[in-house]
Simulated assay, not measured.
Amino acid sequence: MGAKIKEIPAKLPKNFDKPDEPWYRYVTIDLIWKVLGYTLLHPWVSWIVVLCLRAQVTPYENIEMRIAIVWACVMTTVAIFGIISDKIAFGDSREVDLSEEVIVITGGVEGLGALMAEVYGMRNANVAVLDTKKVDDEEAEEKGVLYYECDVGDAKQVERIAAEIIEDLGPPTILINNAGIVRPKSILDSTAEEVEQTFRTNTLSHFNTLRTFLPHMLNANRGTIVTVSSVLGQLGAANLSSYTASKAALLALHSSLRAELAQHSNGQDIKTILVTPGQMSTKMFASVKTPSNFLAPIVAPVDIAKEILRLIEKGESGEIAVPLYSRYIQILALLPVGVQTLVRRWSGVDMAMVKAGLAKGVDKEADEKR
Rank of each mutant, 00 (worst) to 15 (best):
A245F: 03
A245W: 00
S246W: 01
K247Y: 03
K247Q: 06
A248W: 04
A248T: 10
L250M: 09
L250F: 11
L251T: 14
A252P: 02
A252D: 12
A252L: 12
L253V: 10
H254R: 13
H254N: 15
S255I: 14
S255N: 15
S255Y: 15
S256N: 14
S256H: 09
L257Y: 10
L257Q: 09
R258Y: 10
A259Y: 15
A259T: 15
E260R: 13
L261Y: 04
A262F: 12
Q263I: 12
H264Y: 08
H264A: 09
N266E: 07
N266V: 05
G267D: 13
G267R: 01
G267S: 11
Q268E: 13
Q268H: 09
D269A: 11
D269L: 07
D269C: 09
I270M: 09
I270A: 06
K271M: 06
K271C: 00
K271F: 10
T272V: 13
I273L: 13
I273A: 10
L274D: 09
V275H: 06
V275P: 03
P277N: 09
G278N: 03
Q279K: 04
Q279T: 10
S281F: 03
S281V: 10
K283N: 14
M284H: 06
F285E: 04
F285Y: 08
A286W: 01
A286N: 00
V288S: 00
T290L: 06
T290V: 14
P291F: 00
P291K: 01
S292Y: 05
N293H: 06
F294W: 02
F294P: 02
F294K: 02
F294H: 02
F294E: 01
F294Q: 00
L295T: 06
L295M: 12
L295Q: 01
A296H: 03
P297R: 01
P297K: 00
P297W: 01
A300W: 00
A300K: 08
A300H: 09
P301A: 09
P301S: 10
V302C: 01
V302N: 02
I304L: 11
I304R: 00
A305K: 01
I308A: 03
L309H: 04
L309A: 06
L309S: 10
R310D: 11
R310S: 12
L311H: 05
L311K: 05
I312H: 00
E313P: 07
E313A: 09
E313W: 10
K314H: 14
K314N: 14
K314W: 12
S317I: 12
G318S: 14
E319I: 15
E319R: 15
E319N: 14
E319F: 11
I320N: 06
P323T: 07
Y325V: 12
S326T: 15
S326F: 06
R327P: 05
R327E: 14
R327M: 13
